[in-house]
Amino acid sequence: MSAEAEPSGHARVAADAATRGLDIEIFPRPAAGSLVEAAALMGIEPSDIVKSLVVKRSDGSFLFALVPGGRSIAWPKLRAVVGVNKLKMPTADVALDATGYERGTITPLGSTTAWPVFADEGIRGRKVAMGAGEHGYSMFVSGDDLIAAFDATVADISVPE
């Protein structure tokens, strides 16, 4: 199969969401220079943007950590919830190999491997924006529906940046 025949990142996201019965809205979005600028472009608060971070375990497997904008992973908290002593952020090329998405576009939806999802409790009860698998696109989704669609583990896994 040639690269041209493979579905685009946002098409993979849409197909996976449909399979899961997850209602999403994918839309084109201009590039932004900051979290605040990105939120303003979408008419939302910075905390309504969720970062999908791929995290590597010491056994070579991965997980997704979903963290609200303006917050970062609290490594001791995430390690405790996952039940491991060591986690780390992989290099950009390793993240691409693990998910099929480039940094800045990563989402559990349509990932080439279905890694477990750990969501910060701050995404509950709100509509959130997140990457849609391809530069220039974002999506809106209910945080609660996203958590349910992945049977995500929800916990306090972040700290203010």
Rank of each mutant, 00 (worst) to 15 (best):
V67L: 08
S61W: 05
V94E: 15
P68Y: 11
E102V: 11
L53E: 10
E102C: 08
G100P: 06
V67W: 05
L63W: 02
G69Q: 04
L78C: 08
A74I: 01
M89S: 10
I73D: 00
V50K: 02
S72D: 09
D48F: 00
L78G: 09
A39Q: 03
F62M: 10
L35P: 05
L66Y: 12
I73A: 01
Y101N: 13
I49K: 00
S58Q: 11
K86C: 10
K88G: 11
K51R: 10
V84I: 04
R71E: 12
S58D: 14
S47P: 02
K56C: 10
D48V: 00
G60F: 11
P90T: 02
E45Q: 14
P90N: 13
E37M: 01
G100L: 08
S61H: 09
I44E: 11
P76M: 03
V67A: 04
K88S: 15
K56H: 07
V81I: 13
A39T: 03
F62Q: 05
V84K: 09
V84L: 11
S61F: 00
E37D: 14
P76Y: 07
T99M: 09
V81D: 06
S58R: 12
V67Y: 08
A95P: 01
V67S: 06
S72F: 01
P90Q: 13
G60K: 05
V81A: 06
E45D: 14
V82G: 07
A40T: 07
L66V: 02
R57N: 10
S34G: 09
K77E: 13
A80K: 14
F62G: 05
D48M: 07
D93F: 02
V54Y: 07
P90F: 11
Y101D: 11
A98K: 01
N85Q: 14
I44H: 03
G100I: 12
E45M: 08
A80D: 10
K77A: 15
L78E: 13
